[in-house]
């Protein structure tokens, strides 16, 4: 009898874990106003470079904008951000995390849009500790800012 009760509890907790993982999570605080370029860029920076020095956050925003201006990439901010496989923060849904309009990432997005570019036209960045793609290492490093290498 005891063994059955134990097994029951194990199964029940398994079910709870499974449902937590698979049941769709509601996205919080979806507001109805049009998500502007600053917001979208800020969310991308938040997902990709939160915790980096301020300059590193501006740099990630600048790379996205440099891609918009490059023939090798889509030519809208949304096109670049949502290009399949381009950013892990998009693939894993971190881009949807709501952000405070007064947060640092919004300021960084605004500075990038206003023309600050610490990377001088770089199109790529990667974290040397976690980058898995061999291809990205074939890029020449222009500058290291925080944890990221930036390249053209």
């Amino acid at each position: 009898m005891k063994r059955w009760t134990r097994n029951f509890f194990i199964l029940a907790s398994l079910l709870i874990i499974v449902s937590v993982i698979f049941v769709p999570q509601k996205t919080m605080g979806q507001n109805t106003s049009r998500v502007s370029d600053v917001q979208l860029l800020a969310r991308a920076i938040n997902g990709e470079a939160r915790g980096e020095p301020y300059e590193g956050q501006v740099a990630v925003g600048a790379v996205i904008l440099n891609r918009v201006n490059s023939p090798n990439f889509p030519d809208t901010i949304a096109g670049v951000i949502y290009q399949p496989g381009a950013f892990t923060a998009v693939s894993d849904g971190q881009i949807n995390v709501p952000i405070d309009p007064n947060s640092t990432v919004v300021k960084a997005a605004q500075d990038a849009l206003n023309g600050w570019d610490p990377t001088y036209g770089c199109l790529y960045y990667w974290n040397p500790e976690t980058a898995t793609s061999k291809w990205i290492w074939s890029r020449e490093i222009v500058v290291k800012i925080g944890k990221h290498n930036f390249g053209k």
Binding site: F73, P74, D75, G79, P84, G85
Partner: peptide
Amino acid sequence: AANNLSRLPVSFGTLSNTEKFLSQVSD
């Protein structure tokens, strides 16, 4: 064409030269 190309789920960077070709033809 370039716009649709960038929506394909190929691994990142695979179609970079093709994208550039289409952008430059357009431009």
